[in-house]
Structure formats: structure tokens, C-alpha cells
């Protein structure tokens, strides 16, 4: 009975919609798309979000990420580096997580675009940027980058093949 009612309602709704929408969109019905994955900066979900929340992180809009995941990410940071004080950017744990927990990639529309080149911080992400070493330094390196020297670089400093000088910039597939 419930199903019969449901079907009848669905039919009515479809008819009503057909009548009102027909003239605007005669060919394709409007298809909606539901978010499945997202990323801003490299390795945020991977490193800072705990296993049970990884799917949830991918369907949380950036503007509410800090409130939703900030404390969990701080706990992950201190789990990775229990001795964390501040980092090369002078950020304490709360300030550092304050930056990371809204997972968007900042990009400058004037000047160099780089994840971090010693001068410019978070003005984009270029293909050759060693983003992992930057993140390892900020997590493990302490206030001057010299702490935990075995953990601040993975010693893979470049891609395995050169990039192209022009569009589409990425190298041919292997």
C-alpha cells in the first residue's frame, strides 16, 4: 500500500515537473552530482584524518572543516611529533592546525606560485615543488627546521621524469 502511494506520488510529481520544466529543458533531465572526493593541499586527509573519518572528510565543505576536524587533526599532529612546539613558520600547534584544517590550496594571482620556496609560502603548488619535504619540515623540524633530521626529508627531491616546458606541462605517461 505504501509503495502504491509512493508510486502514485512519484508519478504525479514527475508529471507536474514535466509540465513546468518541459519548455526550459526539453531534451535532458537535470542530473545532480553528489560529491565523492575532494582535496586542497597534499596529504591532509591521508596524514591528519583518522581512519573512521576519512570518508566524512571528503564530503565536508571546506568552510566547516576547521570546526569539524580541527581537534582531531591537532591530536594527529601531536601523535606524529609529540615534541611539537613551533615550526619554521613560527606556528604553534593550534595555529598550524588552524591553517591546515581548512583544506584548500591557496594560490596567488600575481607573482610566483609555489607551495614554499623559502620566501613565498602557500602561493600555489607547482609540479616540481617538493611538497612532502615542506610538510615533513613543518611537522617534524621544530622552530628552525633542524629537529628530527631523519624525518624532515624523504630524500626524493624530484619527479622521476622531467616536466614539459609548456602546456599541458605534465610528462608523457610511462
Amino acid at each position: 500500500m505504501k509503495n502504491v502511494l509512493k508510486n502514485a506520488l512519484f508519478g504525479l510529481t514527475a508529471l507536474a515537473c514535466f509540465a513546468s520544466c518541459h519548455k526550459h529543458n526539453p531534451v535532458t533531465p537535470e542530473v545532480f552530482y553528489d560529491e565523492a572526493d575532494q582535496m586542497g593541499r597534499p596529504a591532509i586527509n591521508t596524514v591528519f584524518i583518522k581512519a573512521p573519518d576519512k570518508d566524512k572528510f571528503n564530503v565536508t565543505i571546506p568552510s566547516v572543516m576547521a570546526a569539524t576536524f580541527g581537534s582531531e587533526m591537532k591530536s594527529s599532529l601531536l601523535g606524529l611529533n609529540p615534541g611539537y612546539t613551533t615550526n619554521l613558520l613560527g606556528l604553534n600547534a593550534d595555529q598550524f592546525i588552524g591553517v591546515l584544517s581548512t583544506d584548500v590550496l591557496n594560490a596567488a594571482t600575481t607573482g610566483p606560485t609555489t607551495f614554499y620556496d623559502g620566501t613565498h609560502v602557500l602561493t600555489g603548488r607547482a609540479l616540481a615543488d617538493d611538497v612532502i619535504d615542506v610538510e615533513l619540515h613543518l611537522v617534524f623540524g621544530g622552530p628552525d627546521g633542524s629537529a628530527n633530521p631523519g624525518l624532515t626529508s624523504d630524500h626524493v627531491d624530484a619527479n622521476d621524469v622531467p616536466f614539459l616546458p609548456e602546456f599541458p606541462y605534465l610528462a608523457q605517461p610511462h
Binding site: 576519512k54 570518508d55 606560485t113
Partner: peptide, 26 residues
């Protein structure tokens, strides 16, 4: 990895993002 297979629901799916880059062109 960067975002490769970051979460169970997207692992092995066409929706699985690996990376985002934004940089100044030539």
C-alpha cells in the same frame, strides 16, 4: 599518498583524486 586512495569509499573508483596543482603558466 597525496590524496591517492585516501578514503575507503573512493578507493579504486573513478572518483579517486590523486592530486591538485595550481601554478602560473608559461
Amino acid at each position: 599518498a597525496a590524496d591517492h586512495m585516501d578514503a575507503p569509499a573512493v578507493k579504486g573508483q573513478p572518483t579517486d583524486i590523486t592530486d591538485l596543482y595550481v601554478f602560473q603558466g608559461k
